[in-house]
């Protein structure tokens, strides 16, 4: 630590937090869209892990980062489609369908990935603006990331804008808030929910691909290691608001990285207790946020998880 300035340390922790958080940002924002439309898909973990192997196998086959991302998006959406058919068309229970999707996804990715263990992906393209990356502090913090970090931020902005300011966003919210009323108004409830679910799957797939292409550019079974569940928690934590989901993911990533850094600094810590910290912090923040009461309640999509039956 001696040879490192405090600023460097802080920047390093922040950069580390962004890397740890980006898969969560992507998956949570996608799930947020689905939930805003009233669909509770607990299969995020399964969609992420399938996205991870899809992206990885594509980059091995083609060497192209763009095609790898595309493959992850397609695979994540395909998983979401499976869920949508089950939960929206066939009206199966959403909670159970989501859990089954996760089980299926973990198995499928392991089968798919059998030939890919031991390979590693080429380096993922980074933003390089001449000279800017070398600026002190801001250089690393703002200009030094891989492209997916910027893409994730752009997607959060796009989702926030679309939900709040576009007609489609209004329809999505209406469907999530009161599907019967939306149906009466002539909105295609099921179609909108399909779309939102697929967006959720696509972004979960991207989140998984971030793990297998950028964070640890290799494939290992079950490499998502529970991040899909955290993404689900973040959506509720964020009270269904995209920017809050981003902040929550960065907070979560920050706590995770901070505890690793504090160990690396040689501070006395209990690894097990520290590993609990992000979860306890999430509960604490949740309680604090929920005490605002009304605001949180107003944001919860009222029809979340409810099946829709067209009665006319």
């Amino acid at each position: 630590m001696e040879q490192f300035a405090l600023w460097d340390l802080i920047v390093n922790i922040l950069v580390g937090a962004m890397i740890a958080a980006t898969p969560l940002v992507l998956a949570a924002t996608g799930e947020l869209v689905a939930e805003r439309a009233g669909v509770l898909n607990l299969g995020v973990e399964g969609m992420m892990v399938v996205g991870a192997i899809a992206g990885f196998s594509a980059v091995i086959a083609t060497g192209s980062a763009a095609l790898a991302l595309l493959a992850a998006v397609v695979a994540g959406s395909a998983m979401a489609l499976l869920f949508a058919v089950l939960a929206l068309t066939l009206r199966a229970n959403q909670v159970a369908s989501g859990l089954a999707l996760t089980m299926f996804g973990l198995g499928l990715s392991a089968l798919w990935g059998q030939g890919y263990s031991g390979l590693s992906a080429p380096a993922f393209p980074r933003l390089s603006v001449a000279g800017l990356g070398d600026l002190p502090v801001v250089g690393k913090l703002v200009f030094g990331h891989d492209l997916l970090v910027y893409l994730s931020l752009a997607l959060v902005a796009a989702v926030a804008w679309a939900l709040a300011r576009t007609r489609l966003g209004l329809v999505v919210r209406a469907v999530g808030e009161n599907h019967d009323a939306a149906y009466t108004l002539g909105y295609p409830v099921i179609a909108v929910r399909y779309l939102a679910t697929l967006v959720g799957g696509a972004m979960a797939g991207l989140g998984g691909a971030y793990l297998s292409l950028v964070q640890t550019p290799l494939w290992v079974e079950r490499m998502t290691a529970g991040r899909g569940w955290i993404a689900l928690a973040l959506v509720v934590f964020a009270a269904w608001r995209p920017w809050r989901a981003l902040a929550g993911a960065y907070l979560f990533g920050g706590i995770t990285v901070l505890q690793l850094h504090s160990q690396a600094l040689g501070l006395k810590v209990d690894a097990q207790l520290l590993a609990m910290l992000p979860y306890l912090a999430t509960i604490a923040v949740l309680v604090a946020v929920s005490r605002e009461g009304v605001r949180l309640r107003l944001n919860a999509p009222a029809c979340l998880g409810k099946p829709f039956y067209a009665t006319a």
Partner: peptide
């Protein structure tokens, strides 16, 4: 076994100068 966390830990150590 948690590749992502192992990478985060590696990063933290390297950031400290390892």
């Amino acid at each position: 076994f948690d590749p992502g966390k192992e990478t985060d830990a590696a990063k933290a150590l390297v950031d400290q100068g390892a």
